[in-house]
């Protein structure tokens, strides 16, 4: 058999598998809500990335005060009105989305990076290492997450970085727990035993057989965790423990608008709505992806 033969066969199979992946993607977007959610998400992410070019008043978005135009309702100059310091709300929202999306991303990725390896270890070595990790996970999870994060923020000092770290700490155990359960359920699968029967060691089996087979639920969980992470970051900012003024942050903007809610309602409501839309979009998209992936893994 010539080398060319194998290349052709491999390419043909790869093309089939690509086609299957495209089919799955089409399946995801077949549900209109998922399509809309994906559109909103990509718009918001693009706006966040290109904020300096998109925002009508980039300097005000960063915090420059413009007292001449205080508390104006929506107009063609300011599409979403202005806040207490006369800053353009739309620019503030766009700059605020950077904090929400970036913060959510860091929390979810860091929680997975800490939680997944510990979960792998805890599931694979059920003896003493597993028991220690399980107890730590239970200890951390026994605190209400937001209270724990608030406590950490208060002790460590308010700010975006400490808020993110304070949220990662109660967040990672969920990933450990998920991965631990998954590993325990697949580590007695026959293909793991077959690898052992060939003489492969534990580390090889862990990375070659267990890790690839637990990644799908982890990715789904990360996507579904994005929304709660964004809300938690906003909550800490709302309480004054996260992002500090004059930086733009949705939670902080809600707090700033709260005293004027009866007269200038848009200052508090607009960032709240922005957060609602972003979180809903993430959840709708994550749910649909979960559905499609579970259909796929059944075949």
């Amino acid at each position: 058999m010539s080398d060319l033969d194998f290349k052709q066969l491999a390419e043909k199979a790869a093309a089939d598998h690509r086609r299957h992946r495209r089919y799955l993607l089409r399946l995801v977007f077949k549900k209109r809500a998922a399509l809309a959610a994906a559109a909103i998400l990509s718009l918001m992410v693009l706006a966040a990335v290109f904020a300096p070019w998109i925002a009508p008043y980039p300097d005000q978005g960063k915090g420059e005060v413009n007292l001449a135009d205080r508390l104006q309702p929506a107009s063609f100059n300011h599409y979403l009105g202005t806040d207490v310091y006369g800053r353009d709300m739309l620019s503030r929202i766009i700059y605020g989305s950077r904090i929400s999306i970036f913060g959510g991303l860091i929390i979810v990725v860091a929680a997975a990076l800490i939680g997944v390896p510990l979960g792998l270890l805890a599931g694979y070595r059920e003896g003493i290492p597993g028991a220690i990790i399980t107890r730590v996970v239970e200890l951390v999870l026994s605190f209400p997450a937001v209270l724990l994060a608030m406590g950490i923020s208060i002790v460590a000092g308010a700010g975006f970085a400490t808020a993110v770290i304070a949220l990662i700490i109660p967040w990672w155990p969920w990933y450990t727990r998920l991965v631990q359960g998954e590993v325990i359920s697949i580590k007695h699968m026959l293909y793991v035993e077959a690898a052992g029967m060939l003489g492969y060691g534990r580390v090889y089996i862990l990375f070659r057989h267990l890790l690839p087979n637990i990644l799908t639920p982890v990715i789904v969980m990360m996507l579904l965790d994005f929304g709660p992470a964004i809300i938690s970051i906003g909550l800490l900012s709302f309480l004054g423990l996260g992002t500090q003024p004059p930086q733009a942050d949705w939670g902080l903007m809600v707090w700033e608008g709260a005293p004027n809610i009866l007269n200038q309602w848009w200052i508090a409501v607009v960032p709240g709505c922005a957060m609602f839309i972003l979180v809903t979009a993430f959840n709708l998209f994550g749910d649909r992806l979960k559905e499609v992936l579970s259909i796929d893994s059944n075949q």
């Binding site: 199979a13 699968m189 026959l190 293909y191 035993e193 077959a194 029967m197 060939l198 003489g199 057989h209 690839p212 087979n213 893994s297």
Partner: peptide, 24 residues
């Protein structure tokens, strides 16, 4: 045991469970 393992192999009851779904 490692050098002896290749000399003795096993085929299991459930063929689907004995093949890693993520490997070709």
């Amino acid at each position: 045991l490692r050098p002896l393992r290749p000399k003795m192999q096993m085929v299991f009851q459930d063929p689907r469970a004995s093949l890693n779904p993520k490997m070709t």
